[in-house]
Design a protein around this nucleic acid. Structure first.
Lengths: 332, 332
DNA sequence: GTGAAAGCGCTAACAC
DNA sequence: GTGTTAGCGCTTTCAC
């Protein structure tokens, strides 16, 4: 219960050796005579000495720690990314430190700035990836972006957003739907890719897409937007949501408004968060491979840290998961 | 794109002043002559200088950072705790660093050990709170436990587990149920408190509790245990789950097994995670005040860091949230 | 206002 | 094997 921790010098004094010896012993850099080793062990034990990682890092320049910045720790997609990243990090004896930027670009930067010097490398998911990417570059700290940023020389792992919505539209088209809506999240750059993919598939069938927007990529966002979509002048037969959370909220509110799902409207999301399986109707979605994304990104980062330097942009492939929230269009 | 960051000395050299001056300027400790200030500003700008927090922390002994260790970042209960904690930390200009111990007591200790020296204080949720608590005490690092640990001299904020299940049982009793089961998570110390609370309420009615166990406090855990509970020799009319996640998994599997909910069985959870509102039937639960727990705990920690030292154990009160997963017992 | 110097706790040559 | 020494990048007295 000492208020101030013992230092390497205290140990050295107590064991009657030099600080260098203690340092080497603590780091297992060398072998020692049994006598010295015993004294060292005893002194460390009695003093309750623990080496100060800050001081060590300052010299070695390494922390054996990796920083992960996520946009919203509440979103299962991100927690799964984290799980995947954690698994790989653990295998390589790295510790993960997380920071939640809370969808706030202003804080984002300062949080990453605070995190960066304390870690060996960074895994970053950001709304402003390109900007952050450039800034990271001049920071000179190894990083991997959790989103494709081909325009910056930083490795990244992303997801084929165009293909995801393209597939979703094709699926809905096959079910006989003609009036499709997209409920997006405008503040996000990949939102446009998702719209493009949907439009491309629709264009092939000579159809157009109605685009709506939510204020947040969350269930609350989906709830809030539902009545506008479903009770507006262009009620869709099917709606594709920016992500599963929005879809979950949308479905809940649609039911509250008296609609029967999927009879009155088909709904699909993207990410395949675990909870999509527990709602009714079970959510049709695109498997976003969140955990895999975390794994791949972490592996890339560790490779970079180990000297390998192949700056490429991995693209994870989407896979359609059909469940009960999408059904054949009713006649009329 | 320099590989090595500029130091305070580079700035001093470039601006033609001493390092002490730069330090004071960077920390806003003092006022300067406009001439010096301008030179400083320019040098810092051109060099892209950022002060190294490691070096600073080593001297000041403070990091302006708080470490939070959670058991499972995938569990919405914990992410909400984190949200609450983050909110008040932000107000006081503290940055949060998280670590996910992944329900693994062995890693728990080493992760916290790695985290502790890099932060000013700790917020810890652990399966082995008492043990960790004692250890924390001799570490001398301010900490607050996210669970009541009255037996250790560490502030903590917890939740009235006995009252929670007591209330749940009373609710179920009022609905006419007589055969109640509890689906718990044995590895958790508070599991016993929850069993006690349920038993106390049941005893008043001259009834007994059937206790089952899951291998994990997750939806998968609930799913896996469901058939054992529902198709065993003592099929219950109502089951209380250790937490909402288990309840969600249990409900899903019960439906798969052909049961109609809540007609065939009433189900209740604890925590009030957001997704309980999106499933069908909507989950009856106990509001666990996760966010509030995070807020209170962080406030306590910050108070401690500011010199206040009232080591008490806050107990948050449970509140019953009745939804559709609990209904009147059917005759028979 | 500004600077010189000591040193935070530790590691890494290098010498013995 | 073990000790000496010179810092890592920064803050902090204490002079001027």
């Amino acid at each position: 219960m000492k208020s101030v921790s013992p230092t390497i010098r205290d140990v050295a004094a107590m064991a009657g050796v030099s600080v260098a010896t203690v340092s080497k012993y603590v780091n297992g850099t060398q072998r020692f005579t049994p006598a010295v080793e015993a004294k060292l062990k005893e002194a460390i034990e009695r003093l309750g000495y623990r080496s100060n990682p800050l001081a060590r890092s300052m010299i070695t320049g390494r922390t054996r720690t990796i920083g992960v910045a996520v946009l919203d720790i509440t979103n299962p997609h991100f927690t799964n990314v984290v799980k995947g990243a954690n698994r790989v990090a653990l295998q390589h004896d790295y510790t993960l430190l997380f920071v939640d930027t809370e969808e706030n670009p202003a804080r984002e930067r300062s949080l990453i700035e605070a995190l960066a010097p304390r870690v060996d490398g960074l895994l970053i998911s950001s709304r402003i990836s390109t900007e952050i990417g450039k800034w990271l570059l001049e920071l000179g700290k190894p990083a991997v972006m959790l989103r494709r940023v081909p325009e910056v020389a930083i490795p990244s792992v992303g997801f084929d957003n165009r293909l995801a919505t393209y597939m979703l539209v094709r699926h809905l088209l096959n079910l006989g739907h003609r009036r499709l809506a997209y409920l997006g999240f405008d503040a996000e750059t990949i939102n446009n890719e998702r719209i493009e993919g949907a439009r491309a598939a629709l264009a092939e069938a000579g159809l157009a897409l109605d685009v709506y927007d939510t204020h947040a990529p969350t269930a609350q966002g989906g709830e809030a937007a539902c009545s506008r979509v479903m009770l507006g002048p262009k009620r869709p037969q099917a709606v594709i949501c920016y992500n599963d959370l929005i879809a979950l909220g949308f479905m809940k509110e649609a039911k509250t408004l008296g609609f029967s799902l999927p009879r009155d409207v088909s709904v699909a999301g993207i990410d395949n968060v675990p909870y999509g399986e527990y709602v009714e109707p079970r959510l049709t979605t695109i498997e976003g491979q969140s955990e895999r994304m975390g794994e791949v990104a972490m592996q890339k980062l560790i490779d970079t840290l180990s000297g390998r330097t192949d700056i490429d942009n991995v693209m994870l492939e989407p896979r359609l998961v059909v469940r009960d929230s999408t059904a054949a269009a009713s006649h009329g």
